[in-house]
Simulated scan of single mutants.
Amino acid sequence: MSSDSLVADQTDHPGEEIAVTAAGAIPWRLNSANEDELEVLLIHRPRYDDWSWPKGKIDSGETIPECAVREVEEEIGLVAPLGIPLPPIHYHVAAGLKVVHYWAVDADGAALLPDGREVDSVMWCTPEKAARLLSNPGDVEPLQHLADAHARGELETWPLLVLRHAKAKPRSSWTKAEGDRPLAATGVRQAQAVGRLLRAWKPVRIVTSPWLRCVATIAPYAKAAEVKVKLNESLTEHRHNRSPHKTAAAVEGLFDKQRAVALCTHRPALPTVLKQLAKHMSGRLRDELPDSDPFLAPGEMIVCHVARGGKKKVVAVERFRPFDD
């Protein structure tokens, strides 16, 4: 799933340009009295007198995940990381074809504060009841995907993010130690954008190559979120060249704590990193991983959603590039 998709990928609208892009989420929780019972949150919009999911149009300079997080907070006061991606829906509006990207979001007992203007009431209900109440029939598809994931034990997840550092100054113009090569001016701006994008998944720990260009890439997020950063030499280019198995081990270690984590490394190490991640995926998901150089653009990231539990199973994969000025 790409943050810069501009053409419909639904068979109903092959090749049609998208005129309006929006994003939102389906908040969910497990019933406090019966934790096996899934509930989802419907919102009522007085302007349209309809039942829907929290969502809204993308702002200029914003990525789609950022839009989803912002809209959920603005409409119902829920501040929470994005969970597994859900199928986008497409339909026509006055401006043309509209696409709405959805994610599952674990409400986890959070208090909800509908804004009162765009959303005047909310309702927790079972997926079956929600399917009957939804005003737009297309909104049923992401709901069904969410319910099916719950039935498979793949709805409760934590994110593992792999990030390539932002654009650095060219090697040809740098005469000092390779580990001290800094970000280019473009890379500094990319790092700020990376920081904003990472907030969509709220990693609570960061593991990075200690080389300056990696540390500078994750610094804006780490500072803003007050997240501890662990430096790991196995993620540098030089150490990877000598001992790729240690790089693979560093990736494998990310699964142990089952907590949201971001890893930042270099292009030459990405094949080893991706190969290790692939061991935890189905063949379908492995096919979604980049398989040719440069694998990721500077500042680009892959988001792996890992099912909670002891199986270390990746159940969804996304790929995003921060807004590039």
Rank of each mutant, 00 (worst) to 15 (best):
C67D: 05
P298A: 05
V188K: 12
K55F: 01
P210M: 11
S60D: 09
P81M: 13
H238S: 15
I218S: 10
A185V: 03
R171V: 11
E318N: 07
R132Q: 09
D148N: 08
L163F: 12
P88I: 08
R259A: 15
L285Q: 13
D287R: 09
C125Q: 08
G109A: 05
H238D: 14
P87I: 03
Q10F: 04
E233Q: 11
P268W: 00
A111D: 05
P298R: 05
P114R: 10
G24R: 01
V40N: 03
V119F: 04
E73P: 00
P114D: 06
V72M: 06
Y102R: 04
G195M: 02
R242V: 02
H44Q: 04
A147E: 08
R196V: 03
E75D: 03
P170H: 10
G96I: 01
W124H: 03
P170K: 10
D4E: 14
E252D: 15
A168F: 10
V79R: 11
A111E: 11
D139W: 12
E35I: 12
G138S: 11
A168E: 09
L160T: 05
R284M: 04
T247G: 03
W174H: 06
M281P: 06
N34P: 06
E74Q: 11
V162G: 11
D256N: 08
E252G: 15
D293F: 10
E75H: 05
D324S: 10
G310T: 07
E141V: 15
S172G: 13
R171Y: 13
A177P: 00
A149M: 01
G153R: 09
R286H: 02
W211E: 14
A184Y: 12
A248H: 07
G61W: 09
S52E: 09
G138Y: 11
D9K: 10
P271T: 02
P81I: 13
I218D: 13
P220S: 05
E16P: 04
R189G: 03
G283L: 11
A33E: 14
E71T: 11
E75A: 08
W51F: 13
E233V: 09
T126S: 15
H145V: 12
V204F: 08
L198R: 08
V122I: 15
H150D: 09
E318A: 09
A68S: 10
L113F: 06
L82N: 01
D325W: 06
I64N: 05
I18W: 03
A316N: 04
C214G: 13
K55L: 02
T272D: 00
V69M: 08
V188Q: 09
A25T: 03
P298Q: 01
R267D: 07
W103K: 00
V314K: 02
V20D: 00
R239H: 13
G24E: 00
G83A: 08
V315N: 06
L134M: 10
E288D: 06
A260P: 14
K312D: 15
R308I: 04
P46L: 06
P271S: 07
S5E: 14
V194L: 03
P271V: 05
H145Q: 11
T236R: 07
P182A: 08
W211R: 04
A262S: 12
N31W: 11
A260G: 15
E141W: 12
R164K: 09
